[in-house]
Design a protein around this nucleic acid. Structure first.
Length: 271
DNA sequence: CCGACGTCCTGCTAGC
DNA sequence: TGCTAGCAGGACGTCG
């Protein structure tokens, strides 16, 4: 399930294959993923050169010379990759775009929680830079978090999944960050001390950095580049370790449900 | 206004 | 052994 580290891994592997390439022809299979595909988007893509590849939280931004951007979100099972145009078509392929070097950019997504659309610079500013999305976690300040967390009655797990606060964090890295910070997921965010908030901020960044270094987490369907899996799942401390001994204190890891999501934690370390 | 919860979607698997 | 119900979750809509 692609969160920030997986998306960063995909962007890094796609960058050398896409920047400087020109988009030739576009084929759209399913006309609606999360949102309907607009017919006018074709002419924003055809003939355009890719000028840059960026990531914002869990969003992939493919910038074009005409100031438009092909924006992808991988959702749960989405995969965006470049392959030879002749490569066999995988099931659930929803988008293909031939490039000027006989390769092809493809998007496929079995569960269709992902999205693919074309945005203008104005739209990107509105959707990704304003109140809808918090800063990249590395730019979080304790000061800003203190004021935001004081204003909510939600538990830490819910707060970590809130993209307006911890942009790019999803269920896996929320659990791993809370374990690292030794904070209970059910704690009320407004009850945290300044020291604890600073510890949480540090833990999120450390976990994300390490996950990026391991090319993300592969459980079922996440692959990057030519099909390589991430390896961060081997470093899980809480997520999917229900009933296994805590690596710090040997207490058995417990699973519960918070903010509608499976939540894993050590009842002793994270008390 | 805030927070909890339902919805979308398909593949895998636990359990009968 | 084979089938099926239930679970997985990111973003967004809805409801109390």
């Amino acid at each position: 399930m692609p969160e920030l580290p997986e998306v960063e891994t995909v962007v890094r592997s796609l960058r050398p294959k896409l920047v400087g390439r020109r988009l030739a022809s576009v084929w759209v299979g399913r006309k609606k993923l999360r949102e309907p595909w607009q017919r006018r988007w074709h002419r924003h893509l055809i003939g355009q050169e890719v000028t840059a590849l960026r990531r914002r939280a869990k969003w992939i931004l493919i910038d074009l010379a005409n100031q438009h951007t092909l924006v992808a979100h991988l959702g749960m099972t989405g995969r965006l990759h470049v392959c030879p145009a002749s490569a066999e078509l995988e099931p659930h392929t929803h988008f293909r775009c031939q490039l000027d070097d006989a390769s092809e950019l493809r998007f496929h997504d079995a569960r269709r929680f992902g999205s693919l659309s074309v945005w203008s610079q104005v739209a990107i500013t509105l959707e990704l830079e304003a109140e809808k999305l918090g800063p990249e976690p590395w730019n979080l300040t304790t000061e800003w978090l203190v004021s935001r967390l004081a204003a909510t009655n939600r538990c830490l797990k819910a707060v970590l999944l809130d993209q307006r606060l911890f942009a790019g964090v999803g269920n896996i890295y929320a659990d791993e960050s809370l374990f690292q910070a030794k904070l209970a997921p059910q704690r009320r965010a407004c009850e945290l001390t300044r020291t604890e908030i600073n510890r949480l901020r540090g833990a999120v960044v450390a976990v994300l950095d390490r996950a990026i270094a391991r090319h993300g987490t592969t459980i079922l369907s996440f692959y990057y580049g030519e099909g390589e899996p991430g390896t961060y799942q081997h470093e899980f401390r809480a997520y999917q370790r229900t009933g296994l001994p805590c690596r710090r204190c040997r207490t058995l890891i417990v699973q519960t449900r918070l903010a509608g999501r499976a939540t894993h934690f050590c009842p002793k370390c994270q008390s």
